[in-house]
Simulated assay, not measured.
Amino acid sequence: MTEKFVEWLRDACKGYEVKPYAIYHKVPHEGASWPLVANDADELAALLQKRGHFSALPKESAALANVLEVSIVGYLLDKLKDLPGAVGTRGGERAYPDLEVSGDAFGGGIFAVDVKVARRATNGKQTHSRISLYTGNTFFKYPKMKWPGTFRPFGDYTAHISLLVIYTLDTNSLSRVTDLEVIVQESWKVASKQRSSTTREYLGAVLDLKALREGRGEFSTRDEFYKYWRAYGFKVGRAVANQLAKLTAEQAA
């Protein structure tokens, strides 16, 4: 069931191209005339840029990642609409997952697809920084509870899939993105034993791109992965502790 879905997702992503091209400005340079006539998309883009309608997408990693995430999830939702027996639902901002997929097309399972966008390191062999797979002290640690910002408890999913969007930053390009690569793996298969942040409670993926492509993380089995990270001593702040107490009380009622 999971293998069938992962293979469909990989195949679907082969056709993805970066759709966001630039930020559009409605008002052109002074003196620009209308109507604007172009024979194809490339000519139209060139004319719009010449007239001052475009500025580049943000090059800051988090901002650019949000743009690419919205784009690829929209692309996959369109693909799912054309697939009989498949249902796709987009997640919210700062929510898990970015895309939920279910339906008879994949054997009736429910799959969580989380999009992770990462820039290549200058050596071309690693991600620039470690990808964050999960927040370790909330829905991941307590998989039977429905946390705010989730569709359902973590443990209700058939599988958790990481859709990794890897790019090279091109500061001279309007879209900022070149050499796009999409990697699809079960999340545990690309996990490391390292946190992805020293200040936030995130568990991280391996850095090596070849290992990401091959699903060769630092854990041999799914059970080993969950045992290690659910026992990890993540900090629990007051807000998380209060939410946990509330969910525990609701579950006991």
Rank of each mutant, 00 (worst) to 15 (best):
K144A: 04
S132L: 08
R176L: 05
L80I: 15
V18C: 09
G107S: 11
F154N: 01
D179C: 10
A241L: 11
K193W: 10
A191L: 11
R90C: 04
T2G: 15
Y96I: 00
P58S: 10
L83I: 07
R176I: 06
P97K: 03
N172K: 15
S192G: 09
L174M: 14
D223S: 14
R216L: 14
G237P: 00
R222T: 02
K19D: 03
E7N: 12
A63E: 13
S102L: 02
T150K: 01
L48A: 07
R94C: 04
T135P: 00
N242D: 14
M1V: 09
S175V: 08
A112G: 05
K81R: 15
A159V: 03
S220G: 15
D11H: 03
R238K: 15
C13I: 06
N66I: 08
A95D: 07
G124H: 10
K246E: 13
G52S: 08
V87K: 08
R120G: 02
V18L: 10
R230V: 01
L209H: 04
T122P: 00
K14A: 05
Y75F: 15
C13S: 12
S132T: 08
K227F: 13
A112K: 01
E218W: 11
P28I: 12
A253N: 10
Y21A: 08
L180I: 13
L44I: 06
I161S: 02
G103F: 04
V27C: 05
V18I: 14
P153F: 05
